[in-house]
Design a protein around this nucleic acid. Structure first.
Lengths: 226, 226
DNA sequence: TATTAAATGTGATATATCGCACATTTTTCT
DNA sequence: AGAAAAATGTGCGATATATCACATTTAATA
């Protein structure tokens, strides 16, 4: 954890871009930057939250403890705020956030953050915009999980990695099959079976965690038709 | 559709409570109040949105067109904003909103709404608070639908009506079995079967749409354990 | 009130998915 | 390097749920 000079930061949020030099100085004084490795817990569910967490770089999973196993609600890729809604209202973390890749997080004092909301309306509006986008995105995810059968959900998750996270048709999964299952809302065994099926199909080339999409069109069809 | 005097309105949102007399006058000039009957469409998916919709009284379902059948994302009870996130960003309605009971909606010009966000920081903060609560609530719903089996989902929906919507253990469902199914994310037939089961159990007294909860404790257990 | 349409309940069957068991591979740690 | 632990793939049986079919009730409409 070390102090930062936020003025020089290249990965500001849309909201932080709205802060003036003076406000950025205040932010610098109240911002602690921390690095995390894969598997490190960044935010712990049920703990009291006193800081807003901004994901400066890296990839994180947002998850909740279920009765039996964890459910991954979504993946969040930098730059983005982590679990912003938990910072308002009851100030209890409703979810956990765990690093999937080496990540850097800025922890900002929640009162300073609120001060910016109150004193800089451009900042406030950008926060509202970000929350709007998130909420729409979450509904979309929710729908996927609600109306698709397993093969469609797996197709969906693969497309998520390719199109949203890595912007490439070849990538190395940053998660175990178990986590992939927790993300798709199905069992580990089903993930395994479907991935081998895709591999036999020549829809994907699956080699452990190394994935290559061979037939994106088909994958999209499967994802859409459920 | 008629003009209103917002100063006298008894069902202001938390945000609108923060407006001063002057701002309330502006709101009055830019607010159209409309009444809807059950089945009436208030917001139409994919249409361009130029107004913020505030649900002054009544009950509404938020739903999206699926490939085969509709999915009900949630029920919204007055007082609350309807689909607020659709008003920012691309300004396209991502969902439909349809009245389930006689409802009254205030349509507020989105630019006036934005003006309040920019000029009244208390207003802006209340909007952020409302959006935060919504997002947490949505995640909760999402989890329910993700990790529960049918009987738990039906228990959940019944408890939603009893505890959140009607605040009573006896109520008349404002929805068909089909809609109940769309809300729980299961089939109509499964809803029927589970409701008769609950009726035989003496967990519920089911008489058409008239529901009475006889064993709330059990119902909660079923809802929680899935 | 008669007629039609919509909503509902329920049995039988098909099917998708889970859960378990176990072999095998990969990773982690000493 | 070697041992232990974790992750992974796969067959098989159990099970929850969807789907189809049809009777019956309830509501809507002329």
């Amino acid at each position: 954890m070390d102090k930062t000079i936020c003025q020089l930061c290249k990965s500001k949020s849309a909201a932080t871009e709205m802060l003036n030099d003076n406000e950025l100085s205040v932010l610098s004084e109240n911002c602690a930057v921390t690095n995390f490795l894969p598997g490190d817990i960044i935010i712990k569910q049920d703990a009291h939250s006193t800081n807003v967490a901004f994901l400066k770089s890296g990839l994180v999973k947002i998850h909740v403890a279920g009765t039996v196993k964890d459910k991954i609600l979504k993946l969040t890729k930098a730059p983005a705020y982590l679990c912003l809604p938990s910072n308002f209202g009851d100030k209890i973390n409703h979810f956990s956030a765990t690093a999937l890749e080496p990540t850097t997080v800025c922890f900002i004092d929640v009162n300073v953050f609120k001060k910016f909301i109150y004193e800089n309306s451009d900042f406030a509006f950008q926060i509202i915009l970000e929350m709007s986008k998130n909420e729409l995105q979450n509904f979309h995810n929710c729908l996927n999980n609600a109306q698709k059968q397993n093969i469609g959900r797996v197709a969906d998750v693969i497309l998520l990695f390719a199109n949203t996270i890595y912007n490439s048709n070849t990538f190395i999964l940053p998660v175990t099959r178990e986590e992939l299952a927790a993300l798709a809302g199905i069992t580990r065994e089903s993930v395994s079976r479907i991935l081998t099926e895709f591999n036999n199909d020549k829809t994907l080339k699956v080699n452990g965690r190394q994935i290559t999409i061979l037939n994106e069109k088909l994958l999209k069809q499967i994802s859409e038709k459920g």
